[in-house]
């Protein structure tokens, strides 16, 4: 008997979950912020628009913040930056970021081809 309720309940929970997560990210997305001048401006512009919302020191997206924090990026030492770049290149190559679930609700968050190329080229370089 109970099984009949299980699916609808799960569906409702699922909906709540998605709403919760997408709201969280839009909250932080609008925040204006300053980044140091080290990163090339074109790279920074893409990051600001497409990645920063989830990956910053104040992000409510705990998982995203834990894996990558742009606020910490420029102040960190070279080995840390290289490690971050390596991971960024990997997620870009796999098309994992921004997360597919997030794009379902916000298709305009997807990287355009030229944005993707900009980020890829930058993350491949071993300089700052």
């Amino acid at each position: 008997m109970k099984k009949q309720f299980l699916l609808p309940t799960l569906a409702v929970l699922g909906l709540l979950f998605f709403q919760g997560t997408s709201k969280k990210t839009t909250d932080s997305e609008n925040s204006l912020h300053v980044m140091e001048a080290d990163m090339p401006a074109n790279v920074k512009a893409v990051v600001d628009q497409k990645c920063y919302g989830c990956h910053n020191a104040e992000s409510k997206n705990e998982k995203g913040k834990k894996k990558l924090d742009w606020d910490a990026f420029e102040a960190s030492k070279r080995s840390k930056q290289l490690a971050a770049k390596g991971k960024i290149l990997e997620v870009l190559e796999n098309g994992d970021m921004p997360p597919a679930k997030f794009l379902e609700n916000k298709p305009e968050g997807k990287l355009t081809e030229s944005e993707l190329a900009t980020l890829m080229e930058w993350s491949k370089s071993k300089k700052k």
């Binding site: 080995s79 290289l82 490690a83 390596g86 991971k87």
Partner: peptide, 9 residues
């Protein structure tokens, strides 16, 4: 090298 850095990170 990059893999080592990523794993350590």
């Amino acid at each position: 090298m990059m893999e080592k850095l990523e794993k350590l990170d």
